[in-house]
Structure formats: structure tokens, C-alpha cells
Amino acid sequence: MAISDLKLPAGVTAHTFNTPAVLAEALAKTVAGQLNDAITAQGVATLVVSGGRSPVAFFQRLIEQPVDWSKVVVSLADERWVPVEHADSNAGLLKQHLLKGPAAKARFVGLYNVAPTLDAAAEQADRQLAELPPIDVLILGMGDDGHTASLFPASPNLKQALDLDNPRRCWPMLAPTVPHQRLSMSRHLLSTAKHTVLSVQGQAKLNTLTDALAGDDVAALPIRAFLQPTLEIYWCP
């Protein structure tokens, strides 16, 4: 099966690439163009990315593109509740692979906070995100279980975090894998992005997308909440 075999909702487009490297290069060029368009139109551009190892090649290609990073704000769709120095920190990953060289001039708005509890950290992150400019470009990933950002199936706060009418920006979430404690942007905030890309690799992710398109229970497969018009899917085997 290829992604071209899927019956996608109206307005959702899919792009297939032969290798992860080719996907990363194409995505970097597209995103750079969108950031530059936003800078031209409004003087600033906001990029929200996902963590994990899959986006590293994209980050490395993106910082090679001609972008005025001093006019870019970067944030994370989700974060592990660990210090930046921790090996599992998404912020640490960005500092290592994206926010360096010319991109070190970008302003970073993180989600991690030192707080007595995960709930308190999420409340503080919610207040910080109030200062985030409108999101121009959002890059999402997806797990084999259908989660995106840290919107995991069966997480205690999932229903509220997926509620489009709930204006809260950040929620405490629990993942089934270590580290369990996560911070995630809400569907309400993520859905405001002007451009949204879902970047996935491999047959397992394609199978998950197939399942997501076959039903409408958003809580079972949270990625369903983002299979909306204007979404672009970038996939490679």
C-alpha cells in the first residue's frame, strides 16, 4: 500500500518521497518558504515543531535554508517534563539540531517549567504560550498508536485537550512510555496554525493513518482531530 491509495478527506493532500533524506529536504524548503512569506507579510513568523528523533534530518536541512531567523519564534507542540539537559528533552533536541548557527537568533518559547507538579508546570506553560504569536507553520508527527503532539489515547486529560471549544493552550498529559509525564499544546491552539504538515515514515504509520481514516472516534486515535482541510501529509516508506 502507498499513501496514494488512501481516500483522504477533501482538502487534505499527500506527498510521497523515496527516502527520509529526500522528505527532509523537501519539507525544509517548503517550510522556509512559508516562514519567509510570513516574515514579509507581518514581520515575524512562528514555527511550532514536534520532538523525537524523526524530525532531526528536517531540522538539519531547515537551518541551511535562507531564513531571517532573528524574525522567527520557535516553539514545541509537546514536551517531556524533564530538564533541558535531560537526554529526553525536546527543547534540548532543538538546541542541539535546530537552534544553532543562523537559527540561534530565533526566539524560543518552551513548555518545560520547574514546578512542584506536572499540573503546575502545565499551568505555567499555558501562561507563557499566551505570548506566542499566531502559529504560521506547524509540523506534527504521529505515533503508531495514533497520538500526535502528546495527545495520547487514554491519557486522563485527553477529552479536554481535544475540545476545540476549550481555550486552554497547554495540558498535562501522560504517555504510556517513559518518561510518562508530558506537556502538550491543546487541539484548540494547534488548530490555529496557518499551515500544518503531518510528517510520517514507514508502513506502520501508513497503517495507522488507514485506521484513522476508517473511523471518527478522536479519543481512540487523536490524529483524527487533525485530518482536516489544508493538512499536508509528507510520507516516505
Rank of each mutant, 00 (worst) to 15 (best):
N90Q: 09
A106W: 05
A120G: 01
H97T: 12
P102H: 12
N113G: 01
A115F: 14
L98V: 14
K105L: 13
T117D: 00
K105E: 14
A91C: 03
R107G: 06
D119R: 00
V114L: 12
R107S: 13
A91Q: 07
L98Q: 11
K105N: 11
A121L: 09
G92H: 02
K100Y: 04
L94I: 07
P102C: 05
L93K: 02
L99W: 03
P116M: 07
K105D: 15
A122I: 06
G110T: 12
K105F: 04
A103G: 04
L93T: 11
T117K: 00
K100T: 13
H97P: 12
G92V: 10
L99C: 05
V114P: 07
L118M: 05
K100V: 06
Q96N: 15
A120Q: 01
V109T: 13
Y112L: 11
D119Q: 02
A122C: 04
L94G: 04
H97Y: 13
L98G: 09
L111Q: 09
G101W: 10
L111G: 08
V114S: 14
L118V: 11
K95R: 05
H97G: 13
L118T: 09
A106K: 09
A104E: 14
G101S: 10
K105C: 08
R107I: 06
N90W: 06
